[in-house]
Design a protein around this nucleic acid. Structure first.
Lengths: 98, 98
DNA sequence: TAAAGTTACGTTGCGCGTAAATATC
DNA sequence: GATATTTACGCGCAACGTAACTTTA
């Protein structure tokens, strides 16, 4: 399937902000780049996640389902970083205790 | 950070098989391609995950920690696919019920 | 016509495979 | 020397940005 964490992050942000334009700014991307990313994510999953209109963005049922999982995965990724950092700090503490 | 699911899958496979060569074959990749992927994963995380030797592969402490999270994320990704498929089947059932 | 999203297109960087190098038993 | 991993290098595709297009309120 090959989904990357940036895909998830982009989708979650768009889901919350309900706007591709605004989210693109926040992520330091252009609108077309973000549009393309979201289209490809939907293609990979084989489902439509977003309902686009000139008013903004709404989630489909599949989108809502995906959102829950995406958030869980992003939390898991954060946990990895945190735990790896702790492990590193542990070593440094040992090193500096001589 | 930008980690993709293929990174996780590669790492988990290598962790279990304890060999880059063998895993590369199973994943239909060449050895250098897999090596490069693993190196970049370690670079992204800023930690060493694997201990390489001519005998094969062992996990570092960080590697073991990462493995647990990686497995959890892959399960979560599987769950997404399963649930999305169920949703689609649901629609088809409704459609065919006329 | 303004503000949202999308399509078209050229460029660049990343991931791959082939080939050569290195290390350890 | 056989078997493991790594480095070097060239190529192709995927992701980006700019610019033009489309839609709807």
């Amino acid at each position: 399937m090959d989904i990357d964490s940036m895909d998830l992050y982009c989708f979650v942000k768009v889901a919350y902000q309900k706007s591709i334009t605004r989210t693109a700014h926040h992520l330091h991307l252009t609108q077309p780049a973000l549009t393309s990313r979201l289209q490809k994510l939907e293609a990979k999953l084989g489902v439509q996640l977003l309902l686009r209109s000139s008013k903004g963005i709404k989630l489909t049922e599949e989108g809502s389902l995906f959102l829950k999982h995406a958030i869980r995965i992003l939390k898991e990724l954060n946990a990895i970083e945190t735990e790896l950092n702790k492990l590193q700090e542990g070593y440094n503490t040992i090193k500096s205790n001589h």
